[in-house]
Write a protein that binds this DNA or RNA. Sequence first.
DNA 1: CGCACCATGTAATGCGTTACATGATTTT
DNA 2: AAAATCATGTAACGCATTACATGGTGCG
Lengths: 183, 183
Amino acid sequence: MLKFALLGFLSYGPMTGYELKQRMDRSTTHFWHAKQSQIYTTLKAMEKDGLVESVIREQRERPDRRVYVITPVGTKELQKWLAEPLTELSPKKEHLVLKMFFSAHQDKQTTLTQLYTQLDLHQKQLVQYQQRAVKDIEQAAIEFPQLTGDVKMWKATRKFGERYEEIYVEWIEEMISLINESS
Amino acid sequence: MLKFALLGFLSYGPMTGYELKQRMDRSTTHFWHAKQSQIYTTLKAMEKDGLVESVIREQRERPDRRVYVITPVGTKELQKWLAEPLTELSPKKEHLVLKMFFSAHQDKQTTLTQLYTQLDLHQKQLVQYQQRAVKDIEQAAIEFPQLTGDVKMWKATRKFGERYEEIYVEWIEEMISLINESS
DNA sequence: CGCACCATGTAATGCGTTACATGATTTT
DNA sequence: AAAATCATGTAACGCATTACATGGTGCG
C-alpha cells in the first residue's frame, strides 16, 4: 500500500509528488518503491478520501508545484497502520530465483549469462547501500533536524537492504560455481 | 508472471490446477506464490493462448479433475523466458521494514509487539526451510525420477530462502535490542 | 460433529505498470 | 547539441487478491 508510505513522508512535512518520488528513491527504494505516475494517482485518491490536502504554488521559470499536506485524518490513519501488527509474511517475487528453479535443462552458458547479468546489478546495488544510502541518511538528518529520533530507524532499514544484497551476491556467486562444476 | 511458473511445473508432466497450487506451496513459495483462484484463471487464459491444453478426467466419489498438459508452443515460451537475461532487480515490498522506517514516534511497546509478531512468523518460516522444504525436495526427486538434474537447482533455491530468513530473524532481533536500548 | 481435504470456478475490486502527452531550464 | 532535471498528469492494461459459490469424502 503506497498510500501509507506517502503518508509517512508527508508526516515529515509538506511535499510535492515529484519530491515524494525522490525521497522514496533515496530511502525506501530497497523495500518499497513506486513509479511517478502511481504516486500522482494515489495522491489524488488520497485527497478525495481526506487524508491529504493540496495547494498549488505558482513558480516563474518552472512548472507550478502541487504541494501536499497531511490532514489530521491522514495522521490518524498512518498511526493506526503503523500500530497494526503484521500477522503474515510479506509476499515475495524473486524472478531470478524462479528462473534458476527451472533452468536445469538449459545450456550452461545461457544460465551463466543470466547469473552474471544479475550479479552485476546486485553488486552495484550493494555498493549503493554501503555508500550513497549512508550519505542520503546523513543528508536527510540535516534537512529535517526535528527528526533526530527517526535517524536510527532509517539506519536500521538501510542495514537490512545491505544485508539482503550481501547474501544475494553470495548466492549468485555460489550458483555460478555450481553451474561451472557440473560438466 | 505466474504463467511461467505454471509452464515450468507443467514441463515436469501433466497436472491439475489444484496440484499446481500444492507443488508451488511446497517448493517455490518463498520466491513465488499464488492463490488458487489466480492459478485457475491463469490456466484458462494460457489455454486460450495455446500454451497448454486440458482434458477432463472423470472420477467417482471425487470431483472431476481438469488435467493440463503443456503444448510445444508453451515449451518454447518457457525456454525463451528462461533464456532472457533479467536486466533489472526484482521489485521488493517489505511491509515490516516500511513500518519500521516510520515507527520512530510510536510508543515502544507497540513497536515491540509488531517486531515479536513478525519474529515468530519468520522463525517458523526458517524452520520450515530447514526441515520440511528439505524433505519436500527429496520427495519430489522420488516422484520425478527423470528430473535428477533439477534437484541441485531446487536445493540451491531452497538455500536462498533459508539464508533470507536467517538474516531476517537476525535483523528483527537487532531491532528489538535497538528499541529496548532507547529509553 | 466438525474440520481438513479434494476439486473447480466466477465476479468485483485493488494495486501497479506502461504508454501517452507537454515543455522549459540546467548541466555536460 | 544532447541529456538530465524539473514538474504534472491521464488512459489503458495487466496482474493479483478477496469474496462468492458448491459439495462430497475421510478422519478424529
